[in-house]
């Protein structure tokens, strides 16, 4: 069969969702942000809530998320996305509100906002993309940087003794009573993309049923910050990030798993 006979509109099985704009993504080649953006938009399209969803973009690489997501978006000051989302959700309780944050935003400067929004049990979704580094500003050490991991501000590796331990933010907030669902996923392989999408769908379904706060962490790569090729950075992530940040659901239906 000729390729021209296969490439016809009626045979199309997958293409980018229409909720992603046609702007070229500003991310580095191989960055997980693009995939994470797309699966969030796919979930919103499949649930048919595009006109009722308000996203909050963070400060960081994904500060321009509103250029790529074709829904109503706003952009918060550094780390304050959960606070802004709280305000939006309280004004419009019927709208779906989500924040999309990186680890420098959510786990460093925004720790207070994150923890208190989680503790209040605001009925929002937090998408937390964790790549263990400050990507946009040039690969500085973040609270989530692994022990021994090199960054531009820890060139000999993070010394746990003086610089502290990497913070497991999702496990931390899962202990708070306001959090209904917490999960950690990745988007570097097709199977992981499917699981991550399922978790994000679950998070939005929880919001629909007014269950409380849902947080989905996506462990991602930062090949520029880690100074690696994209494929190599994904292998490094599997070998080093996943043992410390194990994938899977952490809290489902208000019950912490494995306890």
């Amino acid at each position: 069969m000729d390729i021209k006979d296969i490439i016809k509109p009626e045979n199309k099985v997958y293409s980018k969702t229409s909720l992603m704009t046609d702007n070229a993504l500003s991310y580095c080649p191989g960055c997980g942000h693009g995939t994470a953006h797309r699966i969030v938009m796919e979930v919103i399209e499949e649930m048919g809530i595009a006109h009722d969803t308000i996203g909050v973009a963070p400060v960081g690489c994904s500060v321009l998320a509103y250029d790529f997501m074709d829904i109503d978006m706003t952009q918060a000051a550094h780390g304050r996305a959960p606070a802004v989302a709280t305000g939006i959700k309280r004004l419009w309780p019927d709208k779906f509100v989500f924040t999309y944050q990186g680890d420098g935003d959510l786990a460093a400067i925004g720790t207070a906002e994150t923890i208190h929004a989680c503790n209040r049990g605001e009925n929002i979704v937090i998408i937390f993309v964790n790549n263990g580094i400050y990507g946009m500003t040039g690969g500085q050490m973040a609270p989530t940087t692994l022990g021994g991991m090199k960054s531009s501000t820890s060139p000999f590796g993070r010394d746990i003794g003086t610089m502290g331990n990497p913070i497991k933010m999702t496990e931390l907030v899962a202990n708070l009573p306001g959090v209904y669902f917490a999960s950690r996923q990745a988007v570097h392989k097709p199977s992981n993309v499917r699981k991550a999408k399922k978790a994000i769908r679950q998070a939005f379904e929880n919001q629909k049923e007014k269950k409380g706060l849902s947080i989905v962490e996506i462990v991602s790569n930062c090949n520029s910050g880690w100074k690696m090729a994209p494929v190599q950075s994904n292998i490094w992530m599997e070998e080093n990030m996943f043992p410390y940040y194990p994938l899977g659901d952490i809290k489902v239906d208000d019950v912490i798993l494995g306890k």
Binding site: M1, D5, I6, I7, K8, N11, K12, V13, Y14, S15, K16, M20, A24, L25, Y27, P29, G30, C31, G32, H33, G34, T35, R38, V187, H188, K189, P190, V193, R194
Partner: peptide, 21 residues
């Protein structure tokens, strides 16, 4: 036409077509 490439493509630049013959 399994669409694995399109699922992992960070920039969403791949469209997939499939027919059963």
């Amino acid at each position: 036409g399994c669409a694995n490439c399109a699922l992992v493509c960070p920039d969403g630049v791949i469209e997939v077509y499939r027919v059963i013959v």
